[in-house]
Nucleic acid binder design. Structure first.
Lengths: 184, 184
DNA sequence: GACTCCTTGTAGCAATTGCTACATGGTATC
DNA sequence: GATACCATGTAGCAATTGCTACAAGGAGTC
């Protein structure tokens, strides 16, 4: 692997950490370069342009998110929707995964503005989510699997969104309340 | 009312429409001025700075959202959480209200980045949401009203978020699936 | 040693950003 | 009719944005 490719990897890794920490708030080329410990000139040597930087970094982040989701809730025993939501909610609102979900909300908002390269990223990540849910969903035949999967994702993402703007104790109680809400 | 105050009103009204149409994508001072049909110089004559512009406009938007929510689901007959979610979901995913919810998602994301004046706006709107839900929530005594209200809001907001990045037919089925999800 | 390619630095440019300085025509008040 | 304030335009500034031009050190090849 050439020096260039090695450095690219290093930069992607560091920037993934940076995005998970600070979200999309500091993502100008110069700010990214500083966070990656290189000059902005070199960033544009490793990557074609800013969109490619963000694409590569978000691919890495999405990959890690997918991996963690997969190992947190294995796909070998399908769950009824309510139970799947409960388990996924408990996981994604946990201290480790909140950063991922917060970033995800910001990315969706950026896609809503048509800001490159976020629309494409959102499509891919969303497809991954749907697939993840679908593989774990125990539904009676004839039920709308796609619709149900989207609903499950919506609930999980909604928790993340409210989590951004609620005090900590409310956020914790919200998850609990959701559990009872789903069983009545 | 002075000319200045009148113009302020006109501008706020036009910019509310603009934000509902285009979200936060075109919100530089010059772009806002153009959308409002005034010069950027005059925008800063009517308002102290950009943050004040956005605050005023968002206050207007939030007011209208609150009004529509109030009349769509009156507060005189409290509903069980699942039913409240179902009705609110049907309303907020409707063609008229989607714009509001999409903007709301963008505003929350902006607040996540600590972008003035959005954190303050989010606090206010969120408090309004909580109050709205609380006033319509039929819960047994002893239940966690605040937590449940937050959960209800999360589900509604989650639908809005997924709505941004899903095809239209999926979005429609998602609401339906959520209904069955809540009754099992 | 000449040539070429990979790597990296310095400098800068054109566009956009939020905001300001200054001037000027009105309108109202005395 | 002088004064003062309201309303509005022109021009621009300093900072930040994404990106580029150009040069130069170093490593390998002939």
């Amino acid at each position: 692997m050439s020096v260039k490719e090695e450095q690219r990897e290093v930069v992607v890794e560091r920037l993934a950490a940076h995005l998970l920490e600070t979200g999309l708030a500091r993502t100008s080329l110069r700010q990214l370069a500083q966070a990656a410990g290189v000059s902005d000139r070199m960033l544009l040597y490793y990557f074609a342009d800013k969109a490619e930087v963000l694409s590569a970094v978000m691919a890495r982040v999405a990959g890690e998110l997918a991996m963690r989701l997969a190992e947190a809730i294995p796909g070998d025993a399908p769950l009824k929707p309510a139970e799947l939501v409960r388990r996924a909610a408990a996981f994604t609102t946990g201290p480790e995964m909140r950063r991922f979900m917060r970033l995800w909300v910001e990315v969706v908002a950026a896609a809503a503005r048509d800001e490159a390269p976020f629309p494409a990223i959102v499509s891919e990540v969303m497809a991954g989510f749907r697939q993840w849910v679908d593989a774990r969903l125990d539904l009676p035949p004839g039920a709308d699997r796609e619709g149900t999967a989207a609903a499950v994702i919506a609930v999980i993402d909604g928790l993340a969104l409210v989590d951004i703007c609620a005090e900590d104790d409310i956020a914790a109680r919200m998850s609990a309340a959701l559990g009872t809400l789903l069983s009545t």
